[in-house]
Design a protein around this nucleic acid. Sequence first.
DNA 1: CATTTTAGAAAATAATAGTTTTCCATAAAA
DNA 2: TTTTATGGAAAACTATTATTTTCTAAAATG
Lengths: 225, 225
Amino acid sequence: MRQNEHAVRRSRGRPPIRSDEETRHLILEAASLEFRTNGYASTTMAAVGQRAGVSTKTMYRLIPTKADLFKSMCSERIGRFMLAIDETKVGTLALEAALERILGAYGTLALDGEVIAITRLVTSESDRFPELGSAFYEGAFRRTREAIEGWLRRQCDRGLIALDDPGVAADMLRGMMVMEPQRAVMLGQRPAPDADEIAARARMCANLFLNGCRRDRTVAGSSPA
Amino acid sequence: MRQNEHAVRRSRGRPPIRSDEETRHLILEAASLEFRTNGYASTTMAAVGQRAGVSTKTMYRLIPTKADLFKSMCSERIGRFMLAIDETKVGTLALEAALERILGAYGTLALDGEVIAITRLVTSESDRFPELGSAFYEGAFRRTREAIEGWLRRQCDRGLIALDDPGVAADMLRGMMVMEPQRAVMLGQRPAPDADEIAARARMCANLFLNGCRRDRTVAGSSPA
DNA sequence: CATTTTAGAAAATAATAGTTTTCCATAAAA
DNA sequence: TTTTATGGAAAACTATTATTTTCTAAAATG
């Protein structure tokens, strides 16, 4: 028994320069950059291989088709896009400060340049790759919603706020926080916002969401027929 | 002088079956459908010609390249979005009802299936066609913002609401109104919302925006250090 | 050293699609 | 009826590119 269960070199011949896993990683990184820059159709396998410093032969050994390359790359990235709301850090804050922090975290995620690029890419190609559309929506989009929704629901339970549908409210919060800057970046009209801008926006959103902008403080729903 | 300034048949030969303008229109309609369905790269000129019932020869006579076809089609569509926004009749309505109507009009435009499809298309291809990205942003996106912003500003002047920046507030309103359903449609997760859904959403947004959701009615900015 | 195995470089294959051109029936006009 | 312009059908021409294959220079092993 000169060989273990697996992964022990038993053959002669030239040993691999790197592990397949490493090579795969190189390829996916290169693919991410190429796809983000050029889109699916305009990205050539040759360009990916060249950027990764890997021959087409090796590339095709590890990843069978261009579609697989795209899907692997996107799936891997989508897995990263999750909003973590750390209760310990938010719990003790006053209502508005807490919401401000949550929105700041969401904005930092959703308005990151690379995240926007992948979002755009997945959106563009969701016809060709419906699984990716679903994966993105379910895995990334819905998760962040649930994080915010959960927090809203808890504040409702505590009687601090009143919402008919915390889920829809969470969507609205997200929309007010990121839609316009995200769209502007996607359309090439401006660079991704920096931390200060995100923070300022989070503050405005939290305030508006909690307080509204009406001057005369008629309570909602109390208006007569 | 048997011939007018222009456009009068002086030559013999077979007369055109339709005017070039009509033919152009046929082609653009077909192109819209094909591009919306398949995206830029996957749309073939042959498919467009076939759908339009026009030969490639005629097509290339009227529209020199595929890029031109795409740009013409998008520009034409973007032009329509602007028309639809204009003045929503709001005049005498109470504050909240007026905002509800404005948001309903915006939602009806922005959440229309074809508009979403074009939005997605332009967003996808804004790298390849930066002019389109700008045209869309300036022509369609900014206009709707200004329409809403103007109304908000007037309500501020009347003292009914208080906003630091009505422009940003207008963006936020739009985001809360359409981001989530628009994204869901783009990702193929649901069909475009119907009129009832849009109306319901507009109502929720208007209410939330004007009143906020806070239970204890501490006025914003009055909290102690 | 001889045998093997690895992976890059580059050529080969094949299919697709943008663009151009050819060929032709047709329908006024003279 | 002859002339002439129109526009469809289809072939031709080119590029591009995904994918496969060939050729080769390392570099372990025994």
